[in-house]
Design a protein around this nucleic acid. Sequence first.
RNA 1: GGCCCUAUCGUCUAGGGGUUAGGACGGGUGAUUCUCAGUCAUCAAGCCGGGGUUCGAAUCCCCGUAGGGCUACCA
Length: 472
Amino acid sequence: MKKVRFAPSPTGHLHIGGVRTALFNYLYAKNAAGEFILRIEDTDVERSSPEMAEEISAGLSWLGMKWDHEPYYQSHHFEKYREIAFRLLREGKAYRCFCTPEEIEARKKSAPAGLFKYDRKCISLDAAEIERHAAKKTPFVIRFFIPEGVTGFKDRVHKEMKINNSELDDYVLLKSDGSPTYHLSVVADDSSMGISDVIRGDDHISNTFKQILLFRALALKPPKYTHLPLIFGADKKKLSKRHGETSILEFKHKGYLPEAIITYLSQLSWLPGENKKIFTMADLVQKFNLQKLSKNSPVFDYEKLRFLNSLAIRRKPPGAIYDILSEDKEFAAAFSEFAVEKKEALIELVKPRMKTLIEFKEKFKNYLSKEGPVYRREELEKLAPGDKSGLRKNLGVFLDRLSALDSFDSAGVEEALRSSAEEAGVKAAALIHPSRFALTGETVSPSIFEVFAFFGKEESIKRIKSFIAHSG
RNA sequence: GGCCCUAUCGUCUAGGGGUUAGGACGGGUGAUUCUCAGUCAUCAAGCCGGGGUUCGAAUCCCCGUAGGGCUACCA
């Protein structure tokens, strides 16, 4: 059975790049009817926080990635890692190192720039010396002994990879505080959990060699590796904060829908086959495979995400959108006096032109406030420069016809407006645009006749009167 | 610096020896219309450079160049 893990470190927000890694793991596992494990890599006691672990779970759930079993916390298994480190020590595949970080730093400085490798100063300490350190309780780390030779592995996207072991450092397995380093815990767990495939970012390629060597020293079989190209920002640098929002929760708060995000992310280094389309998680699971991964780093394109988000919004029922908007308590409270049907009608009316969910909130402010919209003077001047008396007169004619209307639907209003324009001797546009502004406070809107129908007779007339009063 | 990875329109990508190098986002133009969005039509835009191999290279090989990653008692 295929078994994969998403293994974030809870030291920061769940990053969009991490989400893409999680997604590919999830799709691969589920496509093969396998398991997707959430493993929290909290071996760095200093920097890990339970809140971040919580946020990671929340983010994955929000996007619809359900992990199998309980999340696995590495911090609960320190004893296992220690045992492995000491076993390696006994077998002569690792050694105690008493060098302090400061000493190493100093030696690094005196070495030619960038050329320092751990110099194996502690590799051949004799028993007496170790005894002396033990008596003094000198802190020590356990370093892995890198043997000579060449290490290689077959990567699903990069094919054959290999490196000369002389490039590698005798890296630390167990820190002086007794906690494991990343390499130790990752190898121990990938093995004991029975992980069949490791799918992670490109930045782990060089780590892979170190880990393969550890698997070998432990006489364990490494998993299959797939290294995904890193996502870049517009400047072709690793995607980070300064490129815009990167934490998954920020995307949520900015009004992006999960289906837009997973569709977009699935297209970074892989393509579901069709463009211009929203894919559900089930669609992606069904289509996904690791064979067609691209090797180059994609640039994160916020514009494309917005486009996909608009598609996702358009296909979502108004009730579902309303439910999401209402998760914002402040928003829900602000419009609680309006009937749900009214609010859903508004969502239906404006949703074809929404790119994110927060834009709905703007519309609510203008369309559903009791006081009516705020008429911005400079917008009004653009609409009808100079003297407004003619405008007021024409709107007056229109108002009379509206008041007399029996069926206040979009066809009826249109008929009333066009005949009013004729009567006043102006083009229909001379009434349409001011009406739009009067009703919504905006110069763009859905079809004005539908907007009238949405407001209904009473509110429409009220808003036009209010506008006339404000236009003086 | 060392090691490693990558290279098709601005962006995501298809194409893997013979193609008018295809699609999508974004951009331009036109149509629809009451504005905007949408929709439809249409246009511009690309094989990093140089050497090979070959009848023929975007495609295979080499060398440059550019970008990126790693180089922790972080993961």
